[in-house]
Simulated assay, not measured.
Amino acid sequence: MGTPLGDFIRAKRDSTQPESLGLPDHGRRRSPGLRRLDLAARAGISVEYLTRMEQGRDRNPSVAVVNALADALSLDPSERTHLRYLAKISGGVCSAHLQPAPSRREVRPSVLATLRLLEPGIALVTNRLGDILAHTEAFRMVTSGTGMLDGDAPNLTRYVFTDPRARTFFADWDDVADEQAFDVWLGPSVENSEWFTAELAPAAGPDFTRRLNRHVVPRRGAIRLNHTTGTELHLLRETLELQQDAQQLVVYLPADEKTAEAVDHLLHGPRGLLRAIS
Rank of each mutant, 00 (worst) to 15 (best):
L133D: 01
R140E: 06
N67D: 15
T157Y: 00
P102W: 03
G91K: 04
M141G: 02
S90H: 08
A123T: 08
V66C: 00
A134L: 07
P154C: 12
R116P: 09
A70D: 01
R104N: 14
R108K: 13
G151N: 07
S95G: 13
T168R: 03
L115S: 05
I122M: 09
D131H: 10
E79N: 07
R128T: 08
A153D: 07
T157H: 06
G92R: 14
S74G: 05
V63N: 05
D163F: 08
L75A: 09
R105N: 06
A70F: 00
A87D: 02
D150K: 11
R108W: 04
S78I: 13
P154W: 07
L112Y: 05
R158A: 14
G91S: 05
A64C: 03
R140Q: 12
G145I: 00
L117C: 10
G91C: 08
P154V: 10
T136S: 01
V66Q: 03
P120Y: 00
N155T: 09
L118N: 14
A96N: 11
S90E: 04
P164S: 11
R105H: 09
S95M: 05
G91R: 03
I122C: 12
L83N: 02
S74Q: 13
T114K: 12
A166R: 02
F161L: 09
V66N: 02
P77N: 04
T162H: 15
L129N: 06
G91I: 02
R165M: 13
R104H: 11
S103W: 00
T136A: 02
N155R: 12
L124P: 00
T146W: 02
A87E: 01
A64V: 00
L129C: 14
C94H: 14
L86R: 01
T146V: 11
R158S: 13
